[in-house]
Structure formats: structure tokens, C-alpha cells
Design a binder for these strands. Structure first.
Lengths: 206, 206, 206, 206
DNA sequence: TATGAATGAGCTTTCATTCAT
DNA sequence: CATGAATGAAAGCTCATTCAT
């Protein structure tokens, strides 16, 4: 019956509630990663978690809220790790390189999360049929990356290029690195990340 | 990429049959592009084509075959155009550049096909739940692109880099260029393609 | 998949479709009359008609359309009979008396329809929770009856009274006559109707 | 009409318990009046009362008992008021008139109770699907009213008529007066009641 | 060839009720 | 006394597929 995401002044969720939500979110991630968004029914998620179907309805207002929770938790964990790694860096080249390597590093241990995130981004739609997270859900990400490029352009590290195109390309390169790795578990993720860092360094530098 | 829909020894399709299949495929593309894979039911595709639902079942063994036909036809058209443009080129740099620009050029007039293609690639699964076109559906594409990179590396145009990583990055950059353009119709596709060509030229060159 | 109520210019429903709709409506009436609106699920209605649940969804856009169809058909049949009986009458007293007796006469053979009609009127709500047929659904009926009273008042048959109050009272008296009869099948409906005609004649006359 | 909720030999309810029951009943009345019987879930009633869902289950054996309590309390309050007003009257005409006016007077301030009462009467069913309060729930009421008519017939105030028909008609007229008023809050309830008193006086008098 | 009709499985959601704490 | 948590049945609805005509 709970539906809001921690509005101010509302009772914090109990420990048990929090644990259940986490459990359900984890189960959802696994089922989505395994079977794909379209086949990730509440029934299947519940079965995978060995709980009753109704439990999910009890803890989440609906399927949409559950999916958004998956996104928020997963996305938050990634951002937290990457931001920590980038802290203190001052050169655009260093930031760019670290960004790529840090994301790869974090994701190495979170393959299923990544897969689920992609599925939801691509497939989740609001009740009126519009994509819940379109490509434009990346807008914030693009903006953040453009900051780095502009820094590099200002201080002479980088040549002049279209920062939006670079941000889109950078994002997609990282996303697909993971996608390839998810599909080919033997693929050397860290080596791929280093290659990518080289690639963008060369593509950007003055 | 082209799966055989006309196995040897089978009767060729009649003219009417061919026309119907083409009509249904066209309708499917439009519905998928508009409503997304999950909402592209046979009923909706039939309604959009102003035909009976049964017609689809009559002409296609099932939904899966229809979706595959959409992929084959669309993919085939792209390949045809791009290959024609690349014919006669000899330098890796020229091939790389032309590949990017030619794909963009062709897609500019086929936005819905592109959208539908992405939806199907991402979502279609076989009866046993496995992705029908995973990232590995790109294997042929990657191989073809790797040929170009190796050519460049052999003749000294390109530096030494991991060709598989470059192929993945290249593919994803092009895919997402289109995705961004689909989501932002005012985006300048050709300018984006030129930026991308520059980007990969710099990333590859010796 | 059909949803509209005979919009102009649309293909008329096929004979088979019409028969199915009629069958489903009949089943719905029986189930509602027996089990009440709240327990008249589509599953139960289908089971009662010995058809698959999906058939109802196929022929009706949703439960609401089915319920409205029940109302329209039942209400239409009543109106047809009563109007025929009242045709040609000129005195208000005669119209009043005939109205009561004709409704009773028709309803004697349509007890379940009557029960179902009442249930739907009382219970059906639109998606936003508002009553679909409130007491105000009787507005047309009230207006029609007020015409009769005013005629009587103009030509001196009836005394001066509030026509709206009389219409409400008249309607409710007839409705409850049926309700009582439905609950007590041995009750003499025609005698009740005659008593009622006397009652309102005395209540109205100058 | 008052069913026994305090059978002999059972512990009387504590003060707190009584208060809780009253609070829950009040909440139930408001929710039913607002949303209708079908949408008056225990969850909603609990939420409206700002208590836990479990509290209701704790204080009432089930939903049915809660609903019956709503009926008993509301009905009891009406009867108390009306009986007080009728005390001491001796003529049938006076009793008839007073009955109508007193009920209207009391109800003017208890609109939601009235609405809820109607919803429950119409919709509540026992576990086996039979109406809990059918039209026959009015049997006691009919008997009481028939006493008045027979008194009038014995002492010459009233003509000879079927007392049961008159009781049904009288009850339904009063019920629908309220229903109309609930649906049309601007309707003049007292004027309606006076019209009704006139109407029945004329319908009954010798 | 083409169609409308029908099916049944599966979907999300709501709900009264039970129970441990 | 009160609560939050959990259950499982039942609801309305969508859909791919089958089939007689």
C-alpha cells in the first residue's frame, strides 16, 4: 500500500519493510536480466523470491513503482562509486579516463544489474504508452559528461568538437562494452575499458 | 544476417502472397515504431493494415516469423545501400568514413524502420525465452568492420588497437546516433555523422 | 473487439455476432438477478452461458459496455410495450392508470430483467467512481410523467400539486411494487397495480 | 430490526472497545456514502479513520458484522427520533403525517447515514450469496405502518384499501424522497415531505 | 485466400482475512 | 490492544493462436 518515495515528513520505512523491498528489487533484477523485461511478470518475480505474489503488491504501489525502484537503486549505486573515484581529479583527460575505468570496475561485479537496467530503460512505459525512460533519460548524464569535455576544450587539452555528439558516443560505447561483456562473459572487461579510454583520449585530444 | 525464408525445393511465393507479406511487414514496422514491441500485438498490426487478424496467421507461421521478416527486409535494404556506396573504395580511412556516412544517409529516410529494428533486436525472444537477436546478432557486422580496421593496420593507415573493441564501439556509436535522432527529430543527423567520422578517424589513425 | 453502439456508417453487426451478444446479455441478466451485481463477474456470466470467458471480451469492449447493453435492451423493451398501450389515450386519468397497469403487465413476464435492471442502476459506476446511472438517470422518466400530470392539471382532472414530487413517488411506487413481487413471488402483481392506480387517482384528482 | 450484539451472559464491551467500534462505524458510513458499497474496502475504511486495517478485524468478526452494526446504529437512531415524535398521537391521519415529517426532519441532518444505509440494504449479501437485507428486511416496518392504516380504517378516517400495498408505497415514497434529495442537495426536503403527507392523506381518506 | 469467432493462458491489481509480534 | 506483514483467491482484461466457413 506504500507508494511514495520518501516524501518529507513521512514515517521512514521500517527495517522489515526495507528488507522486503530490497529482496523484491533483487529478485526483479535477476528475473529481468534472465528473462527480459517482457517476461518479468510479478508472478515470476515473486516465484523467484519464493514469496507470494501479493507481497509485491503490498510493498509497491504497482509494477511501475517496482521498476523505478530498481532503476533508482542500481543507478544510485553506480553514480556513488564513480563520483567517489573522480573526486579530486583536475585534468579533463584524467576525468575522462577515470570515468570509463571506474564504471567498468564497478560493473564487473554487477552484471545482472546492468542488464536489468538496460531492459527497463528500453522497455518501461507509462500508463499512456510513452517511454518512461527514453534516450532523453540520459540527458543528465550527457550534461555531466559535456562538462568534462568543455573543461578540456577550455584548458587546451581537447580539440574543438561537438560535445553532445561526443557524450552520446561515449555513453553508448560504455553501454555496449557492458552489453558485449554480458553476452560474452569471457570477454576481458578491464582490457576493453583501457582500450576505450585510449580511444576517447585520442579522439578528444588537441 | 539473412535467414532463409525460401528453402530450396519449396514453391516460390505467389505475387499476391508476396504483396500481402510486404503489406503486413510494413504495418508491423509502423506499429512497432509507434507503440513499442510490447504493445505491437497482432491485433493492432492487423487493424493498422485494415485487414483481419487471421490474415497474418495465414501468411506467417507465427509472430516470431513476422518479426524476423521485418528484420530481414529492413536489414537487407540497409546493407544493399551501404555496400553499394563502399564499392570501389580502397583506403581503410575512406571505407570507415563512407560506412558511417552512408548508413546515416540511408537511415535519414527510414526512421521508423530503424526504430522498429531496434525494438525487435532488443526484445524478440525465442519460445524458450532466449534472446533471438542478442548482441551476438551483430557478429557478422563486427567481422565485416574488423576487416576494414585490419586493412588499415596492415597498410599503415591505422595504429595498433583491438579491432573487436573498435568494431563494438563503432557499431554502438552509429546505433545511438540514430536512437538520439529518433528521440530528437531536430537533431542534425548528417552533422552528427560527420563528427563521428572525424572521431573515429582520429581514434584509429597511426 | 467491437465497442461502439452502432455509429453511423459502420457495418451492421453480423447475425452471429448479434446472437452472441443477445446470449451474453441474457446470461448477464440471469446472473445479476440471481447473485447480485457485485457477484456477477464475467467469469460467472460466461460459465452460466457455457462459453469461454474470452468470448465476452471479444464481443464487448468491457464490462461496462455489457452492462449498458443490458440496460438498453431491457429498458427499450419496457418502453416499447408501455408506449404502445398508452397510444390514443387522451385523459390524464386514463394515461396514469394505463401507465401503471401496462408496466406491471409487461413486467409480469420479465421478473429477472427487472431485478437486473435495478442492480445495475444502483451499482454500476464509471471508471472514475461516479455512479453511471444515478437517481438522475430517471430524469427522462420523470419528465415524461410530469407531462401527464400537467395535462391533468390544465384540463381540471387533477388538483394542484408538485409534479416532480408526484413523479418521484409514482416511479418509486411502481419500482417497489416490482421489488416486493420479486421477493414475494406469490404476491398478486395485477391486484397491486390496480390498488396503485386507485391510490394515485385519488391522490391526484381535483 | 435491532439484532442482538450483546447476547445475555456475554461480557459487556469496555469503554475503549465501544469507542473504537463507534469510530469504525462512523468511518464506514462516510466511506460507503462517498464511494459506494463496492468500493468501501476495509483498507479504505481504515485509512479514512487513520487506523490500521487490523484494528477493524480485531473489533469486528468480519466485514459483515461491521456492516450490520452500521445498519443497526443508524436504523436505531432513526426509530428513536420518529417514535418520540409520534408518541401521544391518536388519529391515524396525524400519525401518518407525523411519521413522514419526522423521518424527513431527522434525516435532514443525517444525509450520509442515509446514503450508507441504502447502499448496505441494497448490496450486502450473506456468505451464501443471499441478500442480507432484502425487501423483506422492511417487514417489521410494514407491519408497524399497517397498524396505523388499520386504525384509520377502523375508526372511519380511512377508506378501505389494501394495507400492505399502501405500506410498500408509503415506504418507497419516503425512501426515494431521500434518494432524490441525496442526489439533488438543493431539493427542498421539507416541502417534499409536506407534499407527500398531503398525497397520502388524500390517498387514504374515506 | 481470407475472415470472424472462439479459446485459454497469463497479465496486474484488489481484497478480506490471518497471524506473529 | 494494535499493528504491519503476508496470503491466495478472484477480478477484468489482453493476447497469440486455432478453426470452421
Amino acid at each position: 500500500m506504500r507508494s511514495e518515495n520518501e516524501p518529507e515528513g513521512q514515517k521512514a520505512r521500517s527495517f522489515i519493510e526495507e528488507a522486503r523491498r530490497a529482496q523484491i528489487v533483487a529478485s526483479a533484477i535477476e528475473v529481468i536480466a534472465e528473462a527480459g523485461f517482457a517476461h518479468a511478470s510479478l508472478a515470476r518475480i515473486a516465484q523467484h523470491a519464493a514469496i507470494s505474489k501479493g507481497v509485491i503488491s503490498y510493498h509497491f504501489a504497482g509494477k511501475e513503482e517496482l521498476m523505478e525502484e530498481v532503476v533508482n537503486r542500481t543507478y544510485g549505486a553506480i553514480a556513488e562509486h564513480v563520483v567517489a573515484k573522480m573526486e579530486g581529479l583536475t585534468t579533463a583527460t584524467g576525468l575522462l579516463r577515470t570515468h570509463i575505468l571506474a564504471v567498468a570496475e564497478h560493473m564487473r561485479g554487477h552484471r545482472t544489474q546492468l542488464r536489468a537496467l538496460g531492459e527497463i530503460f528500453y522497455n518501461l512505459r507509462t500508463a499512456d504508452g510513452q517511454p518512461r525512460y527514453g534516450i532523453n533519460a540520459n540527458e543528465d548524464l550527457y550534461r555531466a559528461q559535456e562538462e568534462i569535455y568543455r573543461l578540456g576544450q577550455r584548458n587546451g587539452e581537447f580539440r574543438d568538437f561537438d560535445t553532445r555528439v561526443m557524450a552520446i558516443t561515449h555513453s553508448s560505447a560504455v553501454d555496449n562494452m557492458f552489453a558485449y561483456w554480458v553476452a560474452n562473459p569471457d570477454h576481458d572487461l578491464d582490457a576493453h575499458a583501457r582500450e576505450l579510454a585510449d580511444l576517447f583520449e585520442r579522439a578528444c585530444r588537441a
